[in-house]
Amino acid sequence: MTIHSLDPRVNRAEIDGEAKIGHLDEFDYWQTYEVFVQIKRGTHHSHVGSVHAPDPEMAILFAKEQYTRRGVCVNLWVVKTSDIFTTEYNDSDIFETTPEKYHRDPESYKVMDRIKAYKEKHNSQS
């Protein structure tokens, strides 16, 4: 039965309402690429999501449509998802280290007291 619609374009297409089509096969939508956007020169590229594409050039094209429709972007990267090597959330203890990190803190290097004491000692001798 042909579909009757309020939309003249649908009527012109004369679509059979009962028609069946074959299923999509796996990989018909290709692979996924992860997308990284740089919003301004001088800033880092940030991950914004993914796209499906058959090759890197198409991935760039789709990423541009999908992630830069609004506002600014000066540069795009796409990386095949399968090429990304990640850590596991389960292994997050690998990031644990000693909580005492005063040695990384500029505030923990106090030399003025020693300099003051040194000066006082020498001034009193002279």
Binding site: F27, Q31, T81
Partner: peptide
Amino acid sequence: VRRAILSKEKKYVAPLA
């Protein structure tokens, strides 16, 4: 159109995040 540009590589991996 999709078939015409189908990639030879058949290694689908779900998006990362």
